[in-house]
Amino acid sequence: MTEIRTPRLLLRRWSDDDLVPLSEINADPEVMRWIGDGSVRDLDETAGDIERYEEEWDEEGFGLFAVELLASGELIGFAGLSVPEYLPEAAHEIEIGWRLGRQFWGQGYASEAAHAVLEWALQDRGLDRVVAVTHLSDAASENVVAKLGMEAERELDHPVFGVPLRVHAIDLTEYQA
């Protein structure tokens, strides 16, 4: 089983115990405001999400990790890799992404998890390039992307919701662990 440990976090595959805590995160309008059209997700939708995350692991050999605090074992969200099928212009890319519960914002957890995922992607998984897609107004995610050393590459509108997005990228030759 694939796991990544950082000083404060465990990134791991999903378990049945993760459904309720992730559904609570997904039910928070502040957490979801930069995701798709900003709609919250209920328990059944979250169960479907976790099922898709696990299918991507099985099909692609990578996916979104459940992220828990090492100190308490509490699920705080997710971070990992996915294929951005929602964005046809980038559907051939591998995207890094993260989502944390609001009570875990501003403590460096997103940056810590994303850095670990990026290092795993480029060094262990052998990927040559990783992208991140952010809403133009999502300053917190833009900050994480900058900390990863990713460069803005292009701007476009979400094909369904019309919101402005920015695609950032980094390749193996630019990455500094």
Rank of each mutant, 00 (worst) to 15 (best):
R33I: 05
Q107N: 12
P29K: 13
D37C: 08
P164M: 07
P84S: 12
Q107F: 10
R33G: 06
H115S: 09
S72Y: 09
E56Y: 03
L43S: 02
Y109T: 04
L156C: 13
H115C: 09
L172E: 11
V20R: 10
E89N: 12
A146I: 07
G38S: 01
E151S: 12
A66D: 05
H115G: 07
G108M: 10
G48T: 06
E68L: 09
Y109D: 00
V83K: 10
G149A: 03
M1E: 14
A132I: 04
G36D: 11
A114E: 02
V167E: 05
M1Q: 13
E3G: 07
F62I: 10
F161T: 08
T2D: 11
L81K: 00
H158E: 12
F104Q: 04
H158N: 14
G80M: 05
A169G: 13
R8A: 11
D128P: 02
S111H: 08
E51C: 04
L87Q: 04
V131P: 02
T6Y: 07
H158V: 11
G63C: 01
V130G: 00
W105L: 10
L127M: 11
P88I: 01
G77T: 07
G149Y: 04
V130D: 01
A47K: 15
L43R: 06
M1L: 12
V117Q: 05
V67A: 09
V131Q: 04
V133G: 00
Q123I: 10
A121K: 04
S39G: 12
S23V: 00
L64V: 08
W57V: 12
A152E: 14
S23Y: 00
L9Y: 00
E93V: 01
Y109Q: 01
E56L: 07
D42K: 07
L156W: 15
S137A: 15
G162Y: 14
W120F: 15
G108I: 05
L165W: 10
L87D: 01
Y53R: 06
K147N: 14
R125D: 05
D17W: 11
A139N: 09
D124P: 04
L9E: 02
D58N: 07
V31D: 02
G97D: 05
L127G: 00
W57N: 09
L10C: 08
D28M: 13
R5Q: 15
D58G: 06
A139F: 10
Y53S: 00
E24K: 11
V130W: 02
W34Y: 15
F62P: 06
E155C: 11
H115N: 05
I50S: 06
L172R: 15
I25F: 09
E151R: 15
Y86V: 13
G149D: 03
H115M: 08
P21E: 02
